[in-house]
Design a binder for these strands. Structure first.
Lengths: 209, 209, 209, 209
DNA sequence: TATGAATGAGGCTTCATTCAT
DNA sequence: CATGAATGAAGCCTCATTCAT
């Protein structure tokens, strides 16, 4: 397994290839969109040749799917772990989830994935379904749990949690989209911190009893 | 965008061509994305031949830009007109704007445009700038005006209107994206009316003094 | 250079395209084999560009199938028509079928097709089945009819017609293969006329009572 | 890498490598044709890696030629030895040659080679020449010797031996082609024994005085 | 104005071949 | 000797664009 003894530089690079390719692919898919991304460019950015890519992925679509899966699942795990271990008020829990989520998202490829999924899910029904089942549904459920926790503890007003979860998630997704897709062209870029503060402020004032 | 005043009636069909092409292009761009949309299919859906398209548009990119411009401007006009003539409370104004905006958006190509802009603005910097300057900035300003109106009249708490405008707009845009792009694959589709009710409920509770 | 005439040239040529492409494809498939034939070369030999080929055929495999069908079916029709109308002895019928078949085959693409089918049927099970059902089976049946006719009239010895049909057909197919595939490299080329005379001689002497 | 010992089994395997590769290559070339055969699959079937193949053969073409040479020459030697030592009638000699040839061919790669040569000789002029000079010419000469022997002894009618040799060889080659290439798709497979009986029957009846 | 046949650049993918280990 | 990761040339196919009619 871990051949720590002798590391023949070659073996080591081999193991890194998939991740290097995934990283390069993420950048380019986000930058240019699925169709406009050329596999040759992905390979070049990963420092390998075109053919090498096919040693690790079946093709463009397979690469795309791997990019999505690799980047999204860890974040969900984190969020769910955090909600498990929380003891304080539900408002505080919501704030924490939002802020930590943003912390993680802004340091990973997650923001780009969000844009990709919006842009391409029409072209990949299979991937869209996977994304909904594994990512969206889990994220939604997390928010619903917080809302129901708050209502059960008398901290939140009584609301329609199923509808509200989407309202609450929407600004988070849009923040990612703006950062990745629209911000570069905006004269007045969004300040994520102020944005998130306002969002949390609105939510807590709007939800608390 | 409105019908020309006096045009020879026998050239009506000729006059309709561009709009028929724009309508067909909108459908297909939204359905398949920019790159995957073939001009031959656009022409076929408009009932003309491929070559005819080039009599009215310079090419694919030009067609795309025209689609965006044609579909977005009227909605902004409506919203601004409505805000001018409002006399009641600011909360009611916000509710009205949201509901009427959705009414108009769900009966036009606006929802599709939103998806297109998110997906493709990276590939069309010039169009992204136009979109920001002419659409996004005007929409943002409209919301800011409502928020400032509410604060000035003592109806809303004091908040950071510049940051909050984005938080409020986000759920509206996301609703469009979900409807256009992600909903078809979701097991639990969003009910727009419940969604908007929850959103207005959250905003008014979160903003009102 | 030679296209100085004022012929409409365009309308006219359109109708000829498929046949020109089929003719070019036949030559190249026979010359180089299926895999080694590049569609660009086919198009070039037909005097069109690569893309034009796709206006008339779905792809390489589709083109290949069309080549086979176009070239083989007419010959079968001819042979069956001839057997219908024959009145003389069965030996004479056999001789006639062989000689006329060769006459037709040597002036068409049939010889090349024979080589193609031998070479490629392993790679195209579907095409091989089609070829067996539509071509081979019909050809076999034709020979069987002649043999049974001869036996019924007391002209031929009693033989196993099912096995003998293949023995009789074999030299005809081999003649085609030699001409198309092996002859160019042979120091002592086959004289088809002498070959056919010997074959008929052998068959009649071997079959007649 | 420190395997300096003398491991019998290993030495053995080393010596067998070329033949294992040739056997694997024969199977795959026959199965899929030259172009569609991937060297990686050849190596895998021989139980070695792709690179190892290049230790024994210069490349794909070299491998192909070796396959042909290795499989064809022994059979010719057998046939010629048999004709030398025959003492009986020429008809019996012909029968014996045919039956023994089939016996040997059906238990070796010879049948596949026949298909390969028909299919690929156009692509390998040099190999086609070798095949004609070393294989075809020797086989032809063998048959001619039998025919002339029969005529000289008054057992056979007077015929054009040069033309007839090809007529007699044709059904044998076709039997190989059918078995290797066309049979798998045929609804009514050929029974080789009945086929050969009919062929010998036709020849002897057609040739004998 | 309208047509649609024709073009050809460009992308994805395959695989024979090389070479560092 | 053996390996298998890496390469890159080459082929199939698509489709935006042109242009003769």
């Amino acid at each position: 397994m871990s051949a720590s003894a002798k590391e023949p530089r070659w073996e080591r690079r081999k193991q890194d290839r998939p991740q290097e390719l995934l990283a390069a692919a993420l950048e380019l898919f986000v930058e240019r969109g699925y169709a406009a991304t050329r596999l040759e460019d992905v390979a070049a950015r990963a420092g390998v040749s075109k053919g090498t890519l096919y040693l690790y992925f079946d093709g463009k679509e397979s690469l795309f799917k791997s990019v999505v899966r690799t980047n999204m699942l860890p974040l969900l795990d984190q969020a769910e772990a955090r909600i498990e271990g929380h003891a304080g008020s539900s408002g505080e829990l919501l704030r924490e989830l939002i802020m930590h989520w943003w912390q993680a998202a802004s340091h990973s490829g997650v923001m780009g994935i969000a844009k990709l999924m919006v842009a391409e899910s029409g072209n990949f029904p299979e991937l869209a379904r996977f994304y909904h089942d594994e990512i969206t549904a889990r994220g939604d459920a997390t928010v619903v749990r917080v809302l129901e926790r708050g209502m059960a503890r008398g901290e939140f007003r009584h609301i329609d949690a199923q509808a509200m979860k989407k309202v609450i998630i929407a600004p988070l997704i849009m923040l990612m989209l703006w950062e990745r897709s629209l911000a570069p062209c905006a004269a007045d870029p969004i300040d994520p911190q102020a944005y998130l503060q306002s969002m949390i402020d609105l939510c807590l004032n709007g939800l608390n009893t």
